[in-house]
Design a binder for these strands. Structure first.
Lengths: 195, 195
DNA sequence: GCACCTTTAGGATGATTGTCCTAGATCGTC
DNA sequence: GACGATCTAGGACAATCATCCTAAAGGTGC
């Protein structure tokens, strides 16, 4: 259990705390307390708060990349894989109701802080966007793929924000059903183009 | 220019700063500097940061109530008034691209802080929701009015979040056109029920 | 011109912040 | 079992934070 493990623990704890409390409101002491290490030890691994943020962003980016890759590897149609993305808001429902979308709330906070790493955080959102674009292209949406991708991404952000505000499970379920129906119609439409 | 004016200036400056920087990240000194008054004078008007927050929430609530009332008073169909709501994201586009939705980002931040006033902030979102519900009922949506209202509200939050992240004007325009078309279809559907 | 209330100024306070430093503990390698 | 590298602990630092205090200025009524 060398420093590698400690470093990982710090990043994991910071990831969770930045999500639940926000980046700015989370202090070195908070993270150190969560990992149960001294501030001195902490400083050995990360010398500035920005370094931790960059590590958290890198971790989140890697996690999401792995998640998307796992859906791709599992196979299935593009439509089915987009549906996996849509259903995240149900799978992570309790967390989303408490703290919103981890990606959307971080990018929003860093934009307001005009933080130097805000563009790096935006890359996580761009990762989702680009993956969705590729899936819609795969579905046959062509030039409209970008538009559809942003539509789904925007939808997910809206649902997350309102879920956090009103904590209405039925709302989330309804919205998921509606967008899945929209996706189904779209896929039907693209398929009928082939004839 | 007695204390009334100073108090109003403080609330206005705090409103703007809470929006652009976030509540937590805005200090007494920031607000005092914006109004160009001393911290002592500040303290005379507001003894705690929470008091300023409550005043800002009250102002925002009143402002939005007045805005909604102005649309109602201007007349027009329920559909036209809902369209006014939808078009806010275009009217306030530059601010939204910089700082997101003032309502959504504040509620999200206060939820994360578990701040005592978070329910009061949520009331602003509830104000929009209830107004939209009433308009959809007016349109003839009946039991589906709540669902449609949350759909539009959720849509606005998603567009605001993505607009802040990607700063893509074309995306905002497209989304507005799409939801207006959805609203048009819905209104057509409700009208055809009458026959 | 005096008394009174509202408003303003600016310094003081203790807590917390991010950051830094030094000293000791633990480890693998020989 | 000794040595150098890695890791940990905890105190010190200046800056900033929300909050509080006292004193003076400004205005109003008599």
């Amino acid at each position: 259990m060398a420093g590698k493990a400690t470093r990982q623990q710090i990043v994991d704890a910071a990831d969770q705390l930045f999500y639940s409390q926000g980046f700015d409101h989370t202090s070195f002491a908070d993270i150190a307390a969560a990992v149960e290490i001294s501030r001195g030890n902490f400083y050995y691994h990360f010398r500035t708060k920005d370094e931790i943020l960059d590590a958290v962003i890198a971790k989140r980016l890697a996690d999401r990349q792995a998640l998307l890759a796992s859906w791709d590897e599992r196979g299935g149609t593009a439509q089915q894989r987009i549906a996996c993305f849509i259903r995240i808001v149900i799978i992570n429902q309790s967390k989303i109701m408490a703290w919103g979308c981890p990606v959307g709330t971080l990018t929003s906070e860093l934009e307001k802080l005009e933080h130097a790493s805000r563009n790096r955080a935006n890359e996580i959102m761009a990762l989702f966007r680009d993956w969705l674009v590729a899936r819609f292209e795969e579905m046959g949406s062509g030039a409209a793929a970008q538009e559809h991708a942003l539509h789904v991404l925007s939808w997910s952000q809206g649902v997350a924000t309102l879920a956090q505000t009103f904590k209405d499970e039925a709302f989330v379920r309804r919205e998921v059903e509606q967008i899945l129906a929209w996706l189904e119609d779209l896929a039907d439409g693209e398929r009928s183009k082939d004839f």
